[in-house]
Design a protein around this nucleic acid. Structure first.
Lengths: 140, 140
DNA sequence: ACTAATTTTTTTCTATAGTAAACTTTTAAG
DNA sequence: CTTAAAAGTTTACTATAGAAAAAAATTAGT
């Protein structure tokens, strides 16, 4: 099982590869706001654990295992962003909150949140009712 | 700002004091599943940061600051348990998930979850509608 | 093709938080 | 009131993850 930090890297690498076809150390460092030296170290660990294949100075690509996990991590991340958005969390808090919690929820909880998002999407009046409660509570 | 680990200790100490009037190193160690030596070390740090007053071998008690924070942490923990319960997460996953995420949500998100819990509590048919969606999704 | 700039890697260092084992203090039993 | 057990503390060690600075490799400009 990858650690939370390993998950951050796998997720980010997956997204970069999806978006640009490849992932470089400096892109990852930038996206995760860490130093390139930290990226190199982690990439070496991810290679050892077979999430990717690493060739010094030449780059790396996800293994089947890494790719499969990456896909799930991105799905989970996007779901949680959607969820916080729906319940009215301010945009400026969403990224950090998702970043913090995504690694700590069981897949049971994730599935329940899938249902919950669907619950709100399939009948917009539910969102309105929630907003109404928020307005009430805000007033106090 | 306390780290996630510090929050765990403050929260646990607050609960023990509420429940029994005092908190001992061994109780905390037991509750958090760490060794007594880890508790001593952390208690010393919490004393240095003025969340509690520590007297070697004699015990400790929360400062006003520690008490105020402890109260909020326990509130947050209980809220998140309620939330996961309502959306149908299995009991055996709730504790770990809450333990994982509680330190990583902004107070903005916490307030939105307060509203969400109220949304479900104030009209039970909403819970039924959610359960209906869960049944559908489970079938697939 | 050569050198300068960029990118990546290595090495050494930091902080947090936990453990094990030895040690000290407190408490409780006789 | 002494001593054994229990509770708590210290010290030295571990792992994870990140940073700074120096070194190495790659790439880009001329």
């Amino acid at each position: 099982m990858p650690t939370p930090s390993m998950e951050d890297y796998i997720e980010q690498i997956y997204m970069l590869i999806e978006e640009k076809g490849y992932a470089r150390v400096s892109d990852i460092a930038e996206a995760l706001a860490v130093h390139p030296s930290s990226v190199t170290k982690m990439v070496q660990k991810l290679d050892k654990d077979e999430y990717l294949v690493y060739e010094k100075y030449r780059g790396f690509s996800l293994t089947t295992k890494g790719n499969k996990i990456g896909k799930r991590l991105v799905f989970r991340h996007d779901l949680l962003e959607q969820f916080l958005k729906i319940i009215g969390v301010k945009d400026e808090n969403i990224y950090n909150d998702v970043e913090g919690i995504e690694h700590h929820l069981s897949w049971d909880s994730i599935e329940r949140i899938v249902d919950l998002v669907q619950f709100f999407q399939e009948d917009e009046s539910r969102i309105d009712a929630l907003k109404e409660i928020q307005k009430q509570n805000e007033a106090e």
